[in-house]
Design a protein around this nucleic acid. Structure first.
Lengths: 342, 342
DNA sequence: CACAGTGTTGTTAGCGTTCACAATTTGGAT
DNA sequence: ATCCAAATTGTGAACGCTAACAACACTGTG
């Protein structure tokens, strides 16, 4: 067997540069007290040997892996996938790598298992895309010294720092827009009833109706899918009183749009429809969808910043109350909304 | 300052169980020659001390991190996000964690940088979501002993094992379906011209037309977006000869659908439209979209399996020709296709 | 010219595992 | 009992890095 050629190691660099391995280490870690000339000599040696430091060895002694863990749920969907992107983007800029552990469902076991796998791999911190409290709670089980942040979804938990969108405010934006167009009231198609995000949107919607003194129609909950929007949309289409519909997300809105169309009710002339999220192609629905945009990638970036801050200041100071960042969504008006028919 | 409590280490377990640390290691690694009684004693000790093995130390000596790297491009889109999901799913089952490095563009530098970051972190192998050859080529720069697999996109490269969908076959499926419905010919809206996937779809489409002796209309390339579909759809809508349109993906199809609708041309009565991908909500477009489904998650899983095999058999045998797995897509017929108007 | 102070470099000892090998025990067969 | 082979366990040395301290330059000052 051909002997496997050994990879270059710190000592090789040291030898070539004519210094001790410790000096090489100092150059690598940008220690101030290294003579300029020595530094360049070492750097040249590293270059010519194509040296890469062994992170495992470094991790072993510093107890810092420069890797962050991400717990994700339904990461194939646009929202979570974008958060993931934002997180990775910011992590790379900060010199971290991101490892992912997706959970198949939101049961306690799954979440604990994910935390476990990540902590085995010695991640320095964890960001959880946490639409439901089960995830946040699972985070609390993380071994000491592991910093966690939850992003998206759940309302405030005092246990863990969070970054989230103000869903209620978004819902108010949507509802008020419709009311201002002159609609008597606004119907709502809810998401899954046990998701805090869905609940918050309901609350914002209801709140706006109350303030305007409008009738509050009943809400139905089910899921986040277009299929659900289609199914429930067929019912709404039968009721001639319905002139404005606010959907818990864009996918539901897509289904509602189709149901209304098939029932012969024109959007926006007969019925106005608003979504939530602003997915990439919502502007090309029939008609283009008025919706509430949330910047998922930005959410991800913010959560990473928060995690890093959290890690930095718990290093030096005593623990403090977890921070909560709330990002405001924004209304995007397109062709699916108009004044009600006279 | 309160002294940081030391974490339990192999020696602690050994002491409690009354054995040497090596025996603990053997239990952990399921070495056969450990007496049953000793094994249980050790396991109990691990349990009661809540011991977790330190992966960094293990990695240092075994040179295996049990981590796989993923190079991803445009991971917020459904396709890549789903592959990522499939990969992570299979990786977890095989006892691996997945670290991601997204690239912002497909330039050589970006790809090399991603490979570099991953190899610094000592991943055991890399899977690249590789729609363009630049990525595959970048992979070749990976340091020796790093196994790579490319998934999705590019045609066969002999350098690296690949897993991909048979885009040409998918395009033929779509085109033939339209021809069989009685359309004289089929128009095509291409993706970006420098993407092999887009090119393969063109070839499949053109191939079907040739065989059927149909006229081959000119193709326009641009991007994968609904905006492009809308823009080009407006042109197609003006041409009364156009009765069937095959789009390079579902998003483009969405834009085409809108353009046709706005031009007063009914789908499917006046014009039939077919997409490619089968995104989650394509079945709720107006009308529901006939499309070519590719199972992205399965693609991801297959690529992981391939990578693992590759890693295993290069361990034992001599290198062999890289394997290429090609997955067949499948036609999903929905309401956007019908016989041409008489 | 001794001396403190500072900047620069080298030496040694781990970090927590696994590996190679040595040492010990065990179980039959002689 | 006796001895060999197999099964089981222990010992010491890596793995490649950083931390802590020691050692050695140089300054400029008294």
């Amino acid at each position: 067997m051909p002997s496997k050629k050994r990879v270059t190691v710190m000592r090789d660099v040291a030898k070539l540069a004519g210094v001790s391995h410790q000096t090489v280490s100092r150059v690598l870690n940008e220690h101030p007290n290294v003579k300029q000339e020595t530094r360049t000599r070492v750097l040249e040696a590293m270059q010519s040997l194509n040296y890469r430091r062994n992170l495992a060895a470094r991790t072993l002694v510093t107890r810092q892996s420069h890797t962050l863990g991400l717990i994700g749920f339904e990461t194939t969907l646009f929202g979570p996938a974008s958060m993931l992107y934002g997180i990775e983007d910011a992590a790379r800029a900060a010199g971290y790598l991101v490892s992912i552990a997706t959970v198949r469902n939101l049961e306690r076991r799954e979440v604990l298992d994910a935390v476990d796998r990540l902590s085995q791999h010695a991640v320095d911190g964890i960001i959880a895309i946490a639409p439901k409290p089960a995830v946040t709670n699972g985070l609390l089980q993380a071994p000491g010294g592991l910093y966690c942040v939850a992003v998206g979804g759940a309302g405030e938990t005092d246990a863990v720092p969070t970054v989230r969108v103000d869903n209620a405010a978004g819902a108010r934006l949507a509802t008020q827009h419709l009311l201002e167009l002159g609609h008597r009231t606004v119907h709502h198609v809810g998401g899954p009833h046990d998701w805090p995000e869905a609940q918050e949107r309901v609350m914002g919607w209801r709140d706006s109706l109350y303030r305007a003194g409008a009738v509050v129609p009943p809400v139905a909950f089910d899921s986040w899918t277009a299929e659900w929007g289609y199914r429930h949309g067929q019912e709404l289409a039968r009721d001639p009183e319905v002139t404005a519909v606010f959907c818990a997300n864009d996918r539901i809105a897509l289904g509602v749009l189709r149901a209304l169309h098939e029932a012969g009710r024109s959007v926006p002339h007969d019925v106005s429809v608003v979504g939530f999220d602003d997915m990439p192609d919502s502007g090309y629905f029939l008609p283009p969808l008025t919706t509430v945009r949330q910047d998922f990638a930005e959410l991800g970036r913010r959560s990473l910043t928060l995690l890093l801050e959290h890690m930095a200041d718990t290093d030096t100071d005593e623990p403090e109350a977890p921070a909560h960042i709330v990002v405001s969504p924004e209304l995007v008006v397109r062709g699916s909304t108009a004044p009600p028919p006279r």
